[in-house]
Each structure stands twice: as structure tokens, then as C-alpha cells.
């Protein structure tokens, strides 16, 4: 990586100091550099590494409320993981996580791309409208979640009122096991579209107009231009948008918890809501299994995160 290139080569003042490149000037510069980094190094260790270590430790011991306070829980190895993996909730929770993530991403990306293509040619008011599209993404999740919960209320929600006018019977969006997962997915898509729109829009803007002119000279139609010019050129940005979306969507917790608490009867439980329920949602917390579920989730997120970083590196090089 270019960032780790030795500093002196970039600094004439030190380079002019002669052959002794590891002289006191250099060492002083290194001290200064790490002095500025000291706060964040301490911070990362204390507030990222340590909580994650505690989380790992939680998952490897058998904790009760008492031993949680006293810190003398017995080491049980992978027992919590075994419990969790054989729990009847695990299969459905994993499946809901996959469905939630894949369906959300597919719709967010498609709608975001369609809107980005719509907005990329300026028209009167386009900048203002594009800004307004950001609102769902900026609202606190508790605000959007509770608004959606009320809109989807079985008896008094506006969605069922509209369906009633159209002659369809009321749907129990949040209280029926058949619908709850789809309801939270719909709300999540609404929240995620703006992010996809903004990122893909800036990706589209980075494509030079001359490419389109060349394509037009060659007689390409609108669809051909999209298929053979826009889409391939947008691929790096698309890949990163999808991967970032993936990492964010795997994390989604607030929305589901506020709208359905993962219910009814676990029908919208994902790994993150299950983890929260185990650790904090019950009267008697099971921190060990909760931490174990969390660690399974983080392993998944990190795997995709590493993929993202690799993709971005490749984009940097090209």
C-alpha cells in the first residue's frame, strides 16, 4: 500500500539531511505521527477490541445474572454455540436473515438504479427532489419504524384502508406470521433506496459524456446504451453499493425490533433480533447464547466486509 511508504522520501527537508536517513529528524517525525495516532489506538483497543473480546468471552462461558456481576462464570467452550446451532430458532432465524437481506438488497438496488437513471439527466427541480429522496434514510429508525407500524396496523392502518377501498380484505401485516417478514422488508427497502440512489447517481455522473456520444454515433439505442455502456462502466460502483448494503442490512436490528419484536411467534426473527432477545429481551437474560449468535452474525458480516475491501482495492488500482 502506498500509505505505508517511508515518509522521508516525501520530505525534502529530511532527504537533504544527507545519507543518515534514520537520523533523529526521522525518529522525531515518527514519534509525532504516532503521537497523533495515540488517542485512536487507545480508543480502538478500549472501545472496539475490548467489547468484542468481552463478547467472545461471554459466548464461551456459562453466565447467569449472578456470575455476570461477579465474573466467575465457568468456561464451557463451544457449548453455547452448540446450544444455539441446535436451537429450533436457529434455522428460521438464519433463513429470515437471508431472505431479509437478499430481498431488501435486490429491491433497494433496482429501485435505486432506476431512480438514479431517471435523475441523472437534469430537469427543473431535479436537485431538490433528489435531496428530498434522502429523507427516509436520514430519519431516526425509531421514527420510520413506528410510522410504518402504524401505517400497517391491522384495524386502523392507512394501508388496509386503501386495500379496503379497492375491495381487498384487511391484511394482518404485523400480526400474522405469513406477512410480518414481508412487512419489515418493505419498510427496510424504503429506508435503503435513498442510499442506493445517491451512490449510484454519483457513479453515473462519473461516466464521461463522451462515451455516450461515441455510442450514439455508433447508433446505439437507449437500451443498448444502458446494456453495453452504462451497466459495465457502473459495475465497480454497483458492486461496492451492494456489498455496503449487504453489510448494513445484515446489521439491521432496530427496525425489526420496533415493528414486530421478531414476532409473531418468531416469524420475523433474524440473527440480530434473536441475539438481542437472548441477551436483553427476556426477564432472565442468556448472555452466553446471545453473544454466540452475535458472533455468528459478525463472522458473516466480516466475511462480506473483507470482500468489500478487496473490491475497493481493485477499484483503486484500476
Amino acid at each position: 500500500m502506498t500509505r505505508t511508504a517511508p515518509a522521508p522520501t516525501r520530505r525534502p527537508a529530511v532527504a537533504a539531511g544527507g545519507p543518515v536517513r534514520q537520523g533523529p529528524g526521522h525518529r522525531k517525525a515518527a514519534w509525532a505521527a504516532w503521537g497523533f495516532l495515540a488517542p485512536i489506538v487507545v480508543y480502538l483497543l478500549a472501545f472496539y477490541a475490548y467489547p468484542m473480546y468481552r463478547n467472545l468471552e461471554l459466548s464461551l462461558r456459562h453466565y447467569t445474572v449472578r456470575s455476570f456481576v461477579q465474573g466467575d462464570a465457568p468456561f464451557t467452550g463451544f457449548a453455547n454455540y452448540l446450544d444455539v446451532l441446535t436451537d429450533a430458532t436457529f434455522g428460521p432465524a438464519l433463513w429470515h436473515t437471508v431472505v431479509f437481506t437478499v430481498v431488501s438488497l435486490a429491491f433497494q438496488f433496482t429501485l435505486g438504479l432506476a431512480l438514479a437513471l431517471f435523475f441523472v439527466r437534469n430537469f427543473p427541480l431535479s436537485a431538490t427532489l433528489r435531496a428530498l429522496f434522502l429523507v427516509p434514510w436520514l430519519l431516526p429508525l425509531i421514527v420510520s419504524s413506528s410510522t410504518w407500524a402504524w401505517m400497517l396496523n391491522s384495524d386502523s392502518g392507512v394501508v388496509n384502508a386503501v386495500l379496503g377501498v379497492l375491495g381487498a380484505g384487511p391484511v394482518h401485516w404485523l400480526t400474522s406470521p405469513d406477512w410480518s417478514l414481508w412487512s419489515v422488508i418493505a419498510a427496510n427497502i424504503w429506508i435503503g433506496v435513498p442510499f442506493n440512489l445517491v451512490v449510484l447517481y454519483s457513479g453515473l455522473q462519473a461516466i464521461s459524456p463522451s462515451v455516450y456520444e461515441a455510442a450514439a454515433l455508433d447508433g446505439a439505442t437507449g437500451w443498448q446504451r444502458f446494456r453495453h455502456v452504462t451497466f459495465p462502466l457502473l459495475r465497480p460502483v454497483s458492486a461496492i453499493t451492494l456489498l455496503l448494503g449487504l453489510v448494513y442490512t445484515l446489521k439491521v436490528f432496530d427496525l425489526i425490533w420496533i415493528m414486530t419484536k421478531g414476532g409473531p411467534s418468531g416469524s420475523s426473527t433474524t440473527l440480530s433480533t434473536w441475539s438481542y432477545r437472548l441477551g436483553f429481551g427476556n426477564l432472565v437474560p442468556s448472555f452466553g447464547p446471545g453473544a454466540a449468535v452475535g458472533n455468528i452474525l459478525i463472522a458473516t458480516a466480516l466475511a462480506f466486509g473483507l470482500l468489500y475491501i478487496r473490491l475497493q482495492r481493485r477499484q483503486d488500482l484500476s
Binding site: M1, R3, T4, A33, L37, I40, V41, L44, F47, Y48, Y50, P51, M52, Y53, R54, N55, E57, L58, F68, V247, L250, K251, F253, S272, S275, Y276, G279, F280, F287, G290, A291, G294, N295, L297, I298, A301, L302, F304, G305, I309
Partner: peptide, 25 residues
């Protein structure tokens, strides 16, 4: 410094529920 930037990228991807449980403990 590169390693530190990398650690920060990774840190961004840690799900909130994990941080919450670790912070709680």
C-alpha cells in the same frame, strides 16, 4: 498507518448488537 486504516474499515462492519453486548458487560 495502513494497518490502522484497515482496522477502522473492519470496525465499521461490526454489528451494533455485538458492540452493545460487549459494552454492557
Amino acid at each position: 498507518g495502513g494497518a490502522l486504516s484497515f482496522a477502522l474499515l473492519i470496525a465499521q462492519m461490526v454489528p451494533g448488537i455485538i458492540m452493545a453486548m460487549g459494552f454492557y458487560a
